[in-house]
Design a protein around this nucleic acid. Structure first.
Lengths: 122, 122
DNA sequence: GCAACATCCGTACACCCGTGCGGATGACGA
DNA sequence: TCGTCATCCGCACGGGTGTACGGATGTTGC
């Protein structure tokens, strides 16, 4: 249990507490991250960032994935508001949402590749 | 299946393919992201970034979480090489690994809070 | 209207993951 | 050596998640 009666380093604990987000805040942030931390969805975002707009079939072809997987991924991203859909006839065209967090786009979609290379376990 | 005989927008598909990471590469990147996309582990990283070094008990106290949860999170992070452990007597002190990706630290640990605020579904 | 089509949705299933519990390991104090 | 302590590990359970399948929705062309 957490029956740690006294902190070993109270100062460090206090210092940490000033920067640790509370459970709710962390939940909020990680929910967005969890959405991106999936191979299919991440590749979808890369594709939409590069091509501006694509329909489901073309996305499945570009990713070489099943339309089910692509459709599910797009639904998640759309529910979260990260992508938008424009319906034209019997098909829907997806693109990154207008409100797509720009820092997320820059830091993740552009610089994420280098992250993996600098990671300890490349 | 992806029996989409012909792409609707071949140019866009080609443009997307130039930027889409392959499945293996995406798997590699998202594995690191998945590790961070967990409330407990994210808060652990925030804590270690702020306090430099902390033992398990103090971390549990700082996060107000069980030592089991903290221990499990630290094990994941340590296995991935994101944190290191220094044993001193019967307790272990954790800190961010020397090779901890600096861009990840800057972009995630420092600017991640604002990301959630700019997200469409804040 | 009818058939083929692109996409969406509901369901079911297998899988992974985080947590809690109990016990094990190694270290301190007497 | 004995008891206590901080942490770690093996195990099993519950919950969430991605995928495949089948059917529904709405569209296009005849």
């Amino acid at each position: 249990m957490s029956d740690h009666p006294h902190p070993v380093d109270a100062a460090a604990v206090a210092r940490a507490r000033t920067r640790i987000p509370d459970a709710f805040e962390a939940e909020q942030v990680t929910s967005v991250l969890t959405l991106i931390a999936d191979p299919t969805r991440m590749r979808l975002l890369f594709a939409l960032d590069a091509a501006e707009e694509l329909c489901v079939g073309d996305l499945a072809q570009a990713l070489d994935a099943s339309e089910d997987a692509v459709g599910y991924g797009l639904r998640m991203l759309r529910t979260a508001g990260l992508v938008t859909r424009r319906k034209e006839g019997r098909m829907g065209f997806y693109r990154l949402a207008d409100g797509f967090p720009e820092p997320l786009r820059q830091h993740c979609l552009i610089r994420l590749a280098e992250l993996s290379s600098t990671a300890p376990r490349g």
